[in-house]
């Protein structure tokens, strides 16, 4: 029973309830929305975002920010796209993606640790640089004519569930277990919660910050690979502005930008919510141009409610502490 009430109190549970609520409300208006087929579809369309949020959560947990993921996604999509188009092996493409992501993550980490640039500026600069590198690489052209067997990869079903979805879900669970159960994985949260404390505990803070950026870069470039497989072509502005949506998804899922708070599962739920709104509007026959307004308003409302709840909880805790002190004195 205690375990159950513990789960209810968690922030992720509230996000989950919200997701369910969204499906139920839209399902009342249009029952097709609740069909398994549609749920599978919404999951499929949020895969790119989920993969990106996993990487972003690692970075956010340490108290940093990675805006370069959109550029990394575009670049890796372009490179993998050309490799696959020219008849390259799929494993070669995966390797290339991991290499690109790790390299960009390393540059980010280098700038942060050695040059002492704030993560926001460093990744912002890399975002614009990677975009240009993508344009130079593709010569400003779209990467098209990607072979059909690559596109088929995103459509393989196992027991009626999309293969890529299964891989991503397993990945999310793996990342969650690593972050919450593994002692090394706990380092990321510790760094974001209190850097000085983490240093005093002997955690190699700089190394783990660099790791977080490498992980985020790899996730972004793998998302690029999914992009190639799902969309089937890569334009020069693939993934433009995606970084802000991903941050929004993480925040919706309860990850704090100040670091130290949040889980991968919550962030992934946030990503699903943001993409579900998209399809929900279609099912409710609301014009698609309402999408941004609703996402933005939702983000602000949820964040403000969160802040108020946290403020009240803080106040209560302070009161309890004060009372305890007074009682101690009286005794």
């Amino acid at each position: 029973m205690t375990r159950f009430s513990k789960i209810i109190k968690q922030r992720e549970f509230r996000t989950f309830i919200f997701l369910i609520l969204l499906f139920v409300v839209v399902g009342f208006i249009n029952t097709d929305y609740l069909s398994l087929q549609n749920i599978d579809k919404s999951l499929k369309s949020s895969l790119i975002y989920i993969v990106l949020t996993v990487g972003m959560t690692f970075v956010l947990l340490t108290g940093n920010l990675d805006i370069s993921i959109g550029g990394t996604l575009g670049l890796s999509a372009a490179v993998c796209g050309t490799i696959l188009r020219d008849g390259g092996n799929i494993f070669l493409a995966v390797l290339a993606a991991i290499g690109i992501g790790a390299f960009i993550g390393l540059i980010n980490g280098f700038g942060l640790i050695k040059l002492k640039i704030s993560s926001f500026i460093m990744t912002l600069a890399l975002l614009s640089i990677t975009r240009v590198v993508q344009v130079i690489y593709t010569d400003g052209k779209w990467v098209e004519n990607i072979p059909a067997n690559v596109k088929e990869l995103s459509k393989i079903d196992i027991f009626g569930v999309n293969l890529l979805s299964i891989i991503v879900i397993v990945g999310v669970i793996f990342a969650q277990v690593y972050l919450s159960k593994n002692s090394k994985g706990r380092y990321y949260t510790a760094i974001g919660d209190n850097v000085d404390g983490a240093i005093s505990l002997g955690i190699p803070v700089k190394r783990y910050i660099a790791y977080s950026f490498v992980i985020s870069g790899i996730c972004a470039s793998l998302a690029g690979l999914i992009f190639v497989s799902q969309i089937g072509f890569v334009s020069t502005n693939a993934g433009v502005g995606i970084e802000l949506t991903v941050i929004a998804a993480c925040v919706l899922g309860g990850v704090s930008l100040a670091g130290g708070i949040g889980t991968v599962v919550g962030a992934a739920l946030g990503a699903i919510i943001l993409t579900s709104i998209n399809s929900a509007l279609v099912f409710m026959k609301v014009p698609a141009f309402w999408n941004d307004t609703i996402s933005g308003a939702l983000l602000i409302i949820i964040v403000v409610i969160d802040a108020l709840l946290a403020f009240n909880a803080n106040k209560k805790a302070k009161k309890v502490r004060l009372n305890a002190r007074v009682l101690q004195k009286e005794a």
């Binding site: 941050i247 929004a248 925040v251 941004d292 933005g296 308003a297 983000l299 602000i300 964040v303």
Partner: peptide, 11 residues
């Protein structure tokens, strides 16, 4: 950052 991000989407 969060509020202005939400604001950006909203506006």
């Amino acid at each position: 950052m969060i509020i202005t991000l939400g604001g950006m989407l909203l506006y």
